[in-house]
Design a binder for these strands. Structure first.
Length: 371
DNA sequence: CCGATTTGACCTCC
DNA sequence: GGAGGTCAAATCGG
């Protein structure tokens, strides 16, 4: 897989062409969503208005989506999901309310927006890569082979460029609270390194899944702040999380069972005996704490595994603090899937958001999937 | 005591 | 040889 090489991306041009209008449509929709959010209390008892508002938003998204599709399907999946989601919103207003109310919307929009930015800047990667597109300038995927590396040079198996780049996204730093903390993504990460990168003002943080050892979860991510925009993190994910998919891996401890199967339950059980901070299947994750900061500013409202270990003292400038996350409550909105899709990006990032709304709109999905 | 972070050293790739 | 990725000892905190 991960064959190659970037340059097959001429639609880049098209992208640029479409962006202006399309993006403005999307932003417009986002804005409307925010407005809706702020007026939610008032609209709550005015179903008609609420409905109109939702229609409005949906319309924008749908239009945008159509435009996107008309241009470059490869970049549309993320948008598409967002749009589909908008569609779905009509289906269950209560969900929408919750969604909007909880800031997830904001975050989701941020993601979408940044995703677009990435798409533009690097039409080759854009958070929407899948097997076909997976490329990385220097990263040659060697998943298979990377199992038996180790051998060559006498010493410990130290390899690089393993697993290939799966997805790369830029994520806005929290708007509130501590902007130094890289955004959560629903998984538990353990920082294993930090390095100054040539030409970058900020160091790059290296994280791997907390369950790497226990469950052989190969997921890793690199977090780095953008030089020109310290409030934005560029996150590169590599490898997929197997820790919440594998039958042996811990997953979300489904609190109020509902949409999870037996496997998950058993996983949850397993989990219960191993750890308490776990990769909430993104599903839950989103619903629980999409926005790390929102709870409480600086002093951690228990959102991030906070900077426990390591000499706190000023070192990790920037990327520092861990992203170890912890969630707890149960919730269960459709949004959950949004989460799942977005950050479960470990793998086919393209579909990052594909899962999100599948139930609502299958037709779109089918189209999308083939990219 | 256990688990997470820090940090310098080491290793691989270009 | 240099840059980037990973390891692992030291350290810290619950």
């Amino acid at each position: 897989m991960f064959k190659s090489k970037t340059s097959q991306k001429e639609p880049k041009q098209q992208l640029e062409d479409m962006d202006e209008t399309t993006i403005s449509l999307i932003l417009q929709a986002c804005k409307l969503a925010r407005d809706l959010e702020s007026n939610l209390p008032n609209l709550a008892n005015q179903p008609n208005l609420l409905s109109n508002s939702l229609d409005e938003i949906t319309k924008n998204f749908v239009t945008a989506r159509e435009r996107v599709y008309g241009q470059d399907p490869s970049t549309s999946s993320c948008l598409h999901n967002m749009l589909t989601f908008a569609h779905q919103q009509q289906i269950g207003t209560s969900h929408v309310q919750e969604w909007l109310r909880s800031n997830y919307a904001q975050q989701a929009m941020d993601i979408i927006q940044t995703q677009l930015v990435v798409d533009q800047k690097e039409a080759k990667i854009g958070g929407c890569i899948d097997d076909d597109d997976a490329e990385v300038k220097g990263l040659q995927a060697m998943e298979a082979s990377d199992m038996n590396v180790a051998s060559s040079s006498s010493q410990r198996p130290r390899r690089r460029k393993d697993q290939g780049l799966i997805s790369k996204i830029t994520v806005p730093a929290p708007r509130i609270g501590n902007t130094e903390i890289p955004p959560e993504d629903g998984f538990t990460w353990r920082k294993y390194g930090q390095k100054e990168i040539m030409g970058s003002r900020f160091p790059r943080g290296y994280y791997r899944c907390t369950h790497q050892k226990l469950y052989n979860c190969p997921a890793k991510k690199q977090v780095q702040r953008l030089d020109n925009d310290p409030l934005t993190f560029e996150v590169m994910y590599r490898g997929e999380h197997t820790c919440h998919m594998s039958a042996t891996a811990p997953s979300i401890p489904p609190p109020s069972a509902e949409h999870h199967n037996a496997t998950q339950e058993s996983m949850a059980r397993t989990l219960a005996t191993t750890t308490t901070t776990d990769p909430p299947t993104a599903s839950l994750w989103l619903s629980m704490d999409f926005n790390p900061i929102r709870g409480g500013g600086g002093s951690s409202s228990g959102m991030i595994g906070s900077s426990r270990g390591g000499g706190g003292g000023g070192s990790g400038d920037g990327v520092g603090t861990s992203t170890t996350t912890r969630y707890g409550k149960e919730v269960d909105f459709p949004v959950v899937d949004l989460a799942d899709a977005m950050f479960n990006s470990g793998s086919s990032s393209t579909n990052s958001m594909d899962f999100i709304f599948t139930s609502a709109e299958n037709k779109w999905e089918s189209e999308d999937k083939k990219n």
